[in-house]
């Protein structure tokens, strides 16, 4: 079953700048994955509960208790750039 994939769109969504050669390479690879998914999707699943998690567990909770946070200096030491207590990043051009 041939699957069409807009590999350029996938790359854009993942913010990856790919060359034409790379786009061709990944298109072929992703198509194989999608073809396999299509095979699985074709199975008769009527009456089968959808699996949203491989573990057969529910309700893993923690109590609403405050725990210790990281030291701000340690946190900002990881930042590419900072301004006082803030992370500083390039200007944002788009709204989510």
């Amino acid at each position: 079953m041939p699957i069409d994939i807009d590999i350029a769109k996938v790359a854009r969504l993942a913010r990856l700048a790919l060359s034409d050669e790379e786009l061709d390479l990944y298109r072929a690879q992703c198509e194989v994955v999608l073809e396999h998914a299509a095979l699985v999707q074709a199975l008769p699943t009527e009456g089968v509960e959808p699996t949203s998690h491989p573990l057969r567990r529910t309700n893993a909770f923690r109590e609403d208790v405050v725990t210790e946070c990281l030291d701000t200096e340690e946190v900002l030491a990881q930042a590419p750039d900072r301004d006082g207590n803030y992370f500083r990043v390039p200007p944002i051009l788009e709204e989510p």
Partner: peptide, 8 residues
């Protein structure tokens, strides 16, 4: 969009 930088 008009900013020169963004603080987080």
């Amino acid at each position: 969009g008009a900013g020169s930088q963004t603080l987080l």
